[in-house]
Design a protein around this nucleic acid. Structure first.
Lengths: 245, 245
DNA sequence: CCAAAAGTGTTGACGCTACACCCATGG
DNA sequence: CCATGGGTGTAGCGTCAACACTTTTGG
């Protein structure tokens, strides 16, 4: 069974973004070290991640990490950067932690990072032995290792991607209203848009298909529902590329 | 002297683009294996790259590789993707080659890739022991290892970057004409632009500064020269961000 | 009847594409 | 005098941002 032997040198970190129409959240793991008397030495937070297995490639490892936490497959994921520095795991708490779990703090570990995004309310976290929870990205101040750096870069990559590709639909139900779509942009970009102008722009996108249905059980005019068609997008995407020149 | 011990597991590949107003070229290394009778077993091409040293981080290794080939420092470089698969070095020729240089073909090597771009005519290649040369990217059909995949992805990243950030100036002399700038875009994007429209757009960029000088020794109207100001760009760049929404 | 969000149109400024002619220079 | 590339303007159209009121619904 060579399947589940870990590679000591390569890890994958996943920045898992969860959207809930209020906040953009990120999935973090509590890391608490106890001493021999069961007193807390320190407690902080890390991104989700793991060493890869010897038979896996990077994408497989990222999918596995996400699956183990959320039970979800076929989720949008994107590799955005790789972090490595010979001393990247040498902060005091990091060394203590790595020793406590029986690993070698001197081993040089390269980590390739992925971000993914999902509808936070669609899933139930699989907690296993450690405490995993959602935290609003705006409120995350510090993380263990170099994970704050990784989170910041993930956010930049997510925003760049959202600005140029139709990935907002990953966060929405199959049928959604234009206002919900706008909310995705506003929460992720941390900005506000004019409703009329947003609608006009959104409706120019030929891959947004108007359905015959409307919302039900809302205490206001029920909104028209739309769907995203990847088929249509693949055919018309070249119309939506813009650039400096 | 721990300085120059290689890390066995981490390598850095550099996709070094060289521009010459005619073509976009890429720097490749000839890889020729001889048998005991000095007959050629095979000969093909690879990207430039190396294992990193134990004291280096990824950026340092990329800079070192570029410096060793070109003698240049302070060149624009950008990490764009990391490639790893347990069998990525297992093609027949690759195994033969790796054995011939005394390494273990079974070791799992992750490679982080950078692209950089420079004015091909500004430099003189440092050749050392292996044959390094420029090849027009359009004519590169196959490469060793997974390097064709890496090159294709580098080109995508370069084009995306060029479309959204003012990196064209990395390929131009300090003082350049608008036509030269246009040529950079045309060669890299593999496209043609209308001269009047291109000028208009370019001149809207506040970080393009018109100089008092003109070209000399050309057999047509000497063109006005411009420079790129990073100072100005840093202040006004938020004006030039555009997006789907 | 109230609160909440849906839906809708116009104006003025600016950017886009497409397109053709004359000019300064070196050889 | 020729070849080369530099430099320039306009028309028609589309998109931009800014801005306010009415409607439907559930409670």
């Amino acid at each position: 069974m060579t399947e589940f032997i870990e590679d000591d040198h390569i890890s994958v970190d996943c920045v898992i973004f969860g959207f809930d129409f209020e906040n953009l959240n990120v999935l973090l793991v509590e890391r608490t070290l106890f001493d021999d008397n069961n007193e807390v030495v320190f407690s902080d937070l890390t991104l989700t991640g793991n060493h890869i297995y010897r038979h896996e490639d990077l994408d497989d490892a990222a999918k596995r990490i996400l699956f183990n936490l959320t039970g979800l497959e076929n989720i949008y994921m994107e590799q955005f950067h790789t972090f490595y520095h010979p001393d990247r795991l040498k902060a005091k708490n990091d060394v203590l932690w790595i020793e406590s779990i029986g690993k070698n703090p001197d081993s040089r570990v390269i980590t390739t990072s992925y971000f993914s995004m999902l509808d936070k309310n669609k899933i139930k976290l699989v907690k296993k032995d450690r405490n995993v929870a959602w935290y609003p990205v705006n409120e995350v101040k510090e993380l263990a290792y170099d994970h704050k750096l990784i989170l910041d870069k993930a956010l930049d990559s997510l925003r760049l991607k959202l600005a140029h590709e139709p990935i907002a639909f990953e966060l929405l139900p199959t049928k959604f209203s234009i206002s919900q779509l706008q909310r995705v942009y506003e929460v992720i970009m941390n900005d506000k848009y004019d409703r009329r102008n947003f609608r006009r722009k959104a409706l120019r996108m030929k891959y947004l298909i108007e359905l015959k249905e409307r919302q039900t059980d809302v205490k206001h005019i029920p909104a028209k529902l739309y769907m995203f068609s990847k088929d249509v997008y693949d055919v018309v995407k070249s119309d939506y590329i813009n650039s400096l020149i």
